[in-house]
Simulated scan of single mutants.
Amino acid sequence: MNAYYVAILQGSVLTVGVSLCALVVSILLGLLGASAKLSGRPVLGSVAAAYTTVIRGVPDLVVMLLVFYGGTIGLNHLLELAGSKATVDINPFLAGVLTLGFIYGAYMTETFRGAILSIPKGQMEAAVAYGMHPLQAFLRITLPQMVRYALPGFTNNWLVLIKSTALVSLIGLKEMTYLGKQASAATRSPFAFFLFTAALFLIYTTISLYVLRKLNARYSLGTKRGEL
């Protein structure tokens, strides 16, 4: 019985790995999406709007299955057309990371866009007039302030992303939800193992919430409470 709990604990490390890697992907896509929406270019704005609309309107599980199974079928079909007899199997870890990152990139896009819009435009105009390159002005002026405005929404997205890693178990990745399900089936004690898995998720989200609240307090130094 104890061996199952140890296995679930080991699987929790994989859960954290998937979450962190997916977070990096979602942040990059979020910054690109927000930049596209605020670029003033109709084509880029339309592509970003279509991305956020579709992703936020389709269930996460459906997107994950489409990427995992549809991606595998599509790649093998392309190899077949190219005359190759080789077959490709998408790694469940990679599929989980890319899918979750792609999904939450849409939510991060709206979070970052709203944060950037909260910053007075005059600051960027002043920075450019002062002689800063647009990228330099973004890194020195916009980004530090954007972090403060984005942290509340970012926190919510991160907490939901962690919990969504449970979906990766459906494509065969042996993270803690997958192992909890296996332990439950083997011992016919679903309550104990799923409760243990739920407790691990709660621990991770609680630690994350604590750290992000500290980060929010640091970035909010010198500001009025009503501005947060």
Rank of each mutant, 00 (worst) to 15 (best):
A115E: 09
A86P: 00
S164M: 07
I73P: 00
L139C: 09
A129G: 04
G96S: 08
T72Q: 15
M132P: 01
L81E: 06
N91K: 11
A127V: 09
Q182D: 10
T87Q: 15
I162A: 12
M176C: 10
G71H: 01
T111P: 05
F112R: 09
G74K: 07
L161T: 06
M132F: 15
T142R: 05
G114R: 15
I119W: 13
A127N: 10
N156T: 14
A95S: 15
K163Q: 10
F68K: 03
A185V: 03
V128Q: 14
L81N: 10
P144M: 10
Y178C: 05
K85V: 01
L170S: 10
K163S: 08
A166W: 00
V168D: 02
V147W: 15
T99E: 01
I103D: 01
L98H: 04
A95L: 07
L179G: 01
F112I: 04
I119F: 15
A185L: 14
V67I: 13
L179S: 02
F102N: 05
T87W: 14
G70K: 02
S169K: 04
Q145G: 14
M146L: 14
M108Y: 15
L66V: 04
L79E: 12
A185C: 00
A126F: 07
I171L: 07
R148V: 02
S118E: 06
A166T: 11
R113D: 01
E125S: 10
T109C: 13
A150I: 02
T99H: 05
L179C: 04
Y104T: 00
G101H: 06
Y104D: 04
S184G: 10
Y107A: 02
R113P: 00
R140S: 12
T142Y: 04
A95D: 03
S184C: 09
Q145Y: 15
E80K: 12
G172V: 00
S84W: 13
L81C: 11
